[in-house]
Design a protein around this nucleic acid. Structure first.
Lengths: 290, 290
DNA sequence: CACAATTACGAGGGTCGTAAAAATG
DNA sequence: CATTTTTACGACCCTCGTAATTGTG
C-alpha cells in the first residue's frame, strides 16, 4: 500500500539529492530511508532511481513520481489545514465593525448567548467588511448604513451621536450645540481606533489637524492635560464614562449621528437568531430615531 | 502523521454510511476501523463524526475531510498509474501503421535492434496515426505519403505494389497487366486487416462488392477454393508466399503503388537512429522508385 | 435480542536504528 | 580513507483481530 510518508521521503531525496542528506533532514537513518525507497519501488513496480553502487539519481520515472508526489503531499497538507480552519470557524464568531462603539455591547452579548464560542472582531473599512462577509471571514458585520443586497439580512439596532469634549476654558464651551465647522481649523485630539469616524472628521473638518493617539489610557490623560478639543459620544460616555474636567457639547450635523446596522448572510440568520432577537429587544424607539 | 490508508478508510465510511459496513468492505474489523478514525481525529485535532453511542454520522468537518480525501486518494492513485505508464512507455516501442506490409519487416528489425523493448503495433487511419504520434501513443508511424510537418522526421523506406490474384479460369488471367476498372463490378475476396488499401479499393472499384474475411487462414483457403478475384502484393508474396493455383497480375494504376514513409518526432530521432539507419540501408533504388 | 460502536489485550507485521559490508573517488 | 548505499539483525511501535462492554431500537 502506497503511503504518504513514502512520498514525503521521496520528496526529501529529490530536494536534497542524496539519501544520507535527506535521511538527516528527515531525522531518519540512511538504511531506513534506503529500505523505504526500495519498498516504494516495489509498490509502484517501477525503478525510480539509477543505482550506481555508490550513488543514486532519480530516473525519468522518479522525476515524474516526485512531480506527482508534490501535488499529493501538498493536497494532503491542505486537507489538514482546511479541516482545522473549518473547525475553528465553527467555534468562533468573527465580527467585523466600522467603529468601536457597537462592540462594547455586542461582545458581551455574544459571549453570553454563545458561551462555547470564541469571539473575535476586526475594525475595517465598510467595503472590506462587505467583502469579508461575502467570503465568510465574518459571521456578521456592523455598518453605519443599511445594505439592501438580497442575500444579506440587515437591520438597524443602535445609534451613536458625537459630542465635542471641550476644556472649560474653551471660548465655545458654553454652547448648547456646535457644528463641525465651528471647530474646524483647530487642532484636535483623536484616538486611532475610531473606524469610519476618522473619515467623517477628515471630510467635515478639512482644516483641522488631528493629533492621533494609539492608546486609550494615554488619550485620556492627554484629554485631561491639554486644552485641545476632542471627541466623545453618547455611547462612549455610557460605556467608558464622561471625560473629567471637560464640557461635552453635542455635534449638531447629521453626519455626527450614526445608525449602526447589523448585517449577516441570510444563510446564517437562523444560527444568529438568539443574538438578533436580543439586539432587537434592546432597541428603544428613541435609540433608533435621530 | 496523516497517512493515505486513513483517508481511504474515511472514504469507505462516507460511502457506506456505517462503520461496520465499511469495515467489512475494507476487509477490516470494526474495532480496527473505529480506532483508526479516532487516530485520524487526533491527527487533525478535529472531530469528524457526531457520536451517538450507537451511531456515528459525519459532521461538517467530516464532510469537508471526505471531500478533500477524495482528491488526495484520487491523485495518489493517478501517481501510481502515471508512473507505471511512463515506465511501460519506456520499455515498449509502439508502432502505428496504415497497412500490414511494412510491419513484416519492421517488427523483426525492431526486435533485433532493441531486444529489451516490447514491440506493439496498431493499424489505424492516417489521421489517427498522426494524432497518436503527436500525443506520444506511437514512437513512430508508417504512412503511405510524406509528412512535411516541421516537428516530424520523415523518409520513404519501402514500396508495395498491388497485384490481382486471379484463378486460371478467369477471362483476364492471361493479361500482362490490369487496371482496377477492368475488374470493377466483380465480387472480390478481401482480408479485413489491410489498412488504407480498403479505402483504395472502395474508391477505385466502386461497383465491386467485397467479401471480407477476418482470418488469414480462412482467406487463403477461400482464395484457393473460389473462382473470385483477390488481391496480393509484391511484399505479401515475398513474405507470405505466392497464392497457389492463382495467376498474379500487376495492377497498373498509380494508386496501386504505395510508398511507405517512416515518420517519427524529431525529439525521438536519436533514440531511433539505429532503426532509421538500418531502414535506410535496406532501401534499394528500385524499391523506392515506382 | 440483533446491531453498532467502543474498550481491553495479545499477536504479528513493518519500520526503525545499530552494526557491518561493499563500492567509489 | 571518507562518503554513500545496501544488507543483516534485533527492538519497538503500531495496527490488527478476538473478545468483552455499553448502548440503542
Amino acid at each position: 500500500m502506497l503511503e504518504l510518508y513514502q512520498l514525503i521521503q521521496l520528496l526529501a531525496i529529490a530536494e536534497y539529492g542524496t539519501m544520507s542528506g535527506a535521511a538527516e533532514r528527515l531525522h531518519l537513518s540512511q538504511p531506513a530511508l534506503s529500505r523505504s525507497m526500495q519498498k516504494l519501488e516495489d509498490i509502484l513496480q517501477v525503478a525510480l532511481f539509477d543505482r550506481q553502487k555508490n550513488k543514486i539519481t532519480l530516473n525519468k520515472n522518479g522525476e515524474l513520481a516526485v512531480e506527482q508526489a508534490r501535488r499529493v503531499v501538498q493536497q494532503a497538507h491542505d486537507l489538514v489545514e482546511q479541516v482545522r480552519a473549518l473547525d475553528r470557524s465553527q467555534r468562533t464568531i468573527s465580527i467585523g465593525t466600522c467603529a468601536p462603539a457597537p462592540l462594547w455591547e455586542l461582545v458581551s452579548l455574544v459571549s453570553q448567548l454563545y458561551p462555547e464560542m470564541t469571539v473575535s472582531f476586526e475594525m475595517k473599512d465598510t467595503d472590506v467588511l462587505l467583502d469579508g462577509l461575502k467570503s465568510g471571514v465574518y459571521q456578521f458585520i456592523i455598518l453605519p448604513f443599511a445594505s439592501n443586497e438580497p442575500e444579506y439580512y440587515c437591520f438597524p439596532f443602535e445609534t451613536e451621536r458625537l459630542y465635542f469634549s471641550l476644556p472649560p476654558v474653551h471660548p465655545l464651551s458654553c454652547s448648547k450645540g456646535l457644528y463641525f465647522r465651528d471647530i474646524d481649523g483647530e487642532s484636535i485630539l483623536l484616538l486611532s481606533q475610531i473606524g469610519f469616524w476618522r473619515e467623517v472628521c477628515r471630510k467635515m473638518m478639512p482644516l483641522t489637524r488631528a493629533l492621533v493617539q494609539t492608546e486609550q489610557e494615554d488619550f485620556n490623560e492627554l484629554v485631561q492635560a491639554s486644552a485641545l478639543p476632542a471627541f466623545t459620544s453618547d455611547l462612549a460616555m455610557r460605556w467608558l464614562g464622561k471625560p473629567e474636567n471637560r464640557i461635552v457639547i453635542p455635534v449638531l450635523d447629521s453626519e455626527a449621528a450614526a445608525v449602526y446596522h447589523f448585517v449577516c448572510r441570510k444563510d446564517d440568520k437562523k444560527k444568529l437568531s438568539a443574538l438578533i432577537q436580543s439586539l432587537k429587544k434592546n432597541i428603544t424607539p428613541s435609540t433608533v430615531k435621530h
